[in-house]
């Protein structure tokens, strides 16, 4: 494919901001529109933009395919582990098992302070969803960019 100066300059200026926006979507996914999948795809499209403008070699110098493979697999395993820890601790698969928030909620519930208990449980749930979003974001970004890098390299 013929490359022009416009594509080169725009890709180099734009892709850092795409990474930043993707990180914003991942980290604020529990309170505003966005989330792990959307942020991961935005990060991956930043990598794809680099690969289209500078060639797959330049993109793979920054994001080696072997490391992306490891990130993708580790993300899957960590996500499964985060779900199964909830089963072991007795809150169900992918239940909120953050111990500190749960203990605060239990203590407040025994006293009878339902407002504090609800607030503590909600704060704990937000932290747990943030953790899950982080894992999904890493996994999706690695997976989608790996698919496209492999496709572009082998053709």
């Amino acid at each position: 494919m013929r490359k022009t100066d416009i594509l080169d300059v725009v890709a180099r200026k734009l892709s850092p901001y795409m990474f930043l926006f993707g990180l914003y979507l991942v980290s604020f996914g529990d309170t505003s529109p966005g989330g792990g999948f959307q942020g991961g795809v935005v990060i991956a499209s930043g990598i794809i933009l680099l690969a289209m403008a500078r060639g797959t070699g330049a993109a793979e110098a920054l994001f080696p395919a072997s490391r992306l493979t490891v990130l993708e697999v580790v993300g899957y395993v960590v996500f499964l582990a985060a779900g199964i820890v909830g089963v072991i601790l007795g809150v169900g698969f992918l239940g909120d098992w953050f111990a500190r928030g749960a203990s605060v909620a239990a203590r407040a519930a025994t006293v009878g302070d339902t407002a504090t208990a609800t607030a503590a449980a909600a704060a704990s749930a937000h932290r747990f969803v943030f953790l899950l979003n982080l894992i999904i974001g890493v996994k999706v970004a690695a997976g989608v960019s790996l698919i496209c890098l492999t496709l572009f390299r082998e053709t």
Binding site: M1, Q38, V41, A44
Partner: peptide, 26 residues
Amino acid sequence: APDVALTEAAVGTGVGSVVLIWIVFK
């Protein structure tokens, strides 16, 4: 549905178009 709109913008307009353009060139 801003969540769905974000997914559509990222997947449909971004990654999907790039893959289709690559297929057309190949």
